[in-house]
Design a binder for these strands. Structure first.
Lengths: 198, 198
DNA sequence: AACTTTAACCTAGGGATCCTAGGGAACGGG
DNA sequence: CCCGTTCCCTAGGATCCCTAGGTTAAAGTT
């Protein structure tokens, strides 16, 4: 019988596709094996176990998302860059819900595997670069990066969870949020003493 | 043999506790049954299936969180209310990670069950009430509510996922984010034509 | 208090999943 | 052509979800 030609990469891709189609929770070894025309036991040569597979899907997604954002923001600055960045983020989450969900999981990813993946680190760098035009200095820069990433992630997560049941379209709110964040970055509040008690 | 005295509520509570201890993914019927000193089949009298149980945990969590926020913001207004609201939200996520994760799940909750739970709706009302002091009118009000909820959720989600690996403490960034949001609400940008292309 | 009714909890078991152990067959290098 | 490596398989144990049907404890009736 001819071999299936499995690879760690092909298994991961199959898992990612499955995640987008049926949800990350329904990505099982058996399902992935069926999709590849193979018995489930055969996967364990290429992937340590289910958790490892999910981690690899998460890293794959992080890389893909980063690349899309990088392409979208290339050559842009200021609000242009902010909007392009945010829209690329949200679009990836819409197009690949399963993959995107994988990136949320408290990652017990193999450290050396994570170190080899440029995605997450690159993503942070991109965010810093995008904010360059706003002229923030540390530690405000880090705070701003975290605020932006929180908002982007939170918005698409709530959107996916059906948290925006109101009449107003999410798209409208999204655009307004980007306006608001842009304004905020332009008028980033100076640090003051005795603020915002714990 | 004496009966265990199970109830839908007791099963849900046991599931919620388990979720906080071992993570929502590891909440299984068997585990919950063991914790209650009962065989797994016995649970199905009180809970339709695992998905139903998870939905009930999510609603329980939503209610608990709402109550804490309501208590924290009672009698406060403006930035005081904003900070109290946000801190209560984040604290709940820290104290009950499993329950909080349950609230994120794209809810296939029994509609009539969800209708009976005041949590989610009340939470939105609370947010609107908290924003009253900023004098926003619709649709800006809805947009602001969504922005705030997105940011709060996104922040604690990224925090839980280990997304803030940088040196700067998340607490610092959190306080700055609240400052920033307060400033933003005070200077909410007016809607303009031809903004933020899709 | 005895009897009836309800329902809580059980045992038994099917189907699916994850994962390990070990065998045989296809491929690549000599 | 032969041999070793690697791939994929079969076989099987453990755990999980969920259903069907029986027993027995509790609640209600008279």
């Amino acid at each position: 019988m001819a071999r299936a030609g499995l690879t760690t990469e092909r298994v991961t891709t199959a898992g990612a596709e499955l995640a987008d189609e049926v949800g990350l929770d329904n990505v099982t070894m058996s399902q992935v094996a069926r999709r590849l025309g193979v018995k489930d036991a055969s996967l364990y040569t290429h992937v340590r176990n289910l958790e490892d597979l999910r981690g690899r899907i998460a890293l794959l997604a992080a890389d893909e998302k980063t690349i899309l954002i990088a392409e979208a923001t290339a050559g842009r600055a200021g609000k242009d860059a902010l909007v392009a960045y945010a829209n690329a983020w949200r679009e990836y989450a819409h197009r690949h819900p399963g993959r995107y969900t994988a990136t949320q999981t408290p990652l017990r990813i193999d450290p050396e595997l994570a170190a080899a993946a440029p995605g997450p680190r690159r993503a942070v760098e991109l965010t810093y670069g995008m904010l360059h035009a706003y002229g923030l200095a540390e530690p405000d820069l880090t705070d701003a990066v975290r605020l932006l990433r929180s908002t982007f992630h939170g918005f698409v997560a709530l959107e996916a969870a059906g948290g925006f049941a109101h009449r107003r379209s999410p798209q409208q709110s999204w655009l307004r949020a980007l306006d608001a964040l842009h304004t905020l970055l332009e008028h980033w509040p100076q640090a003051r003493e005795g603020e915002a008690a714990p």
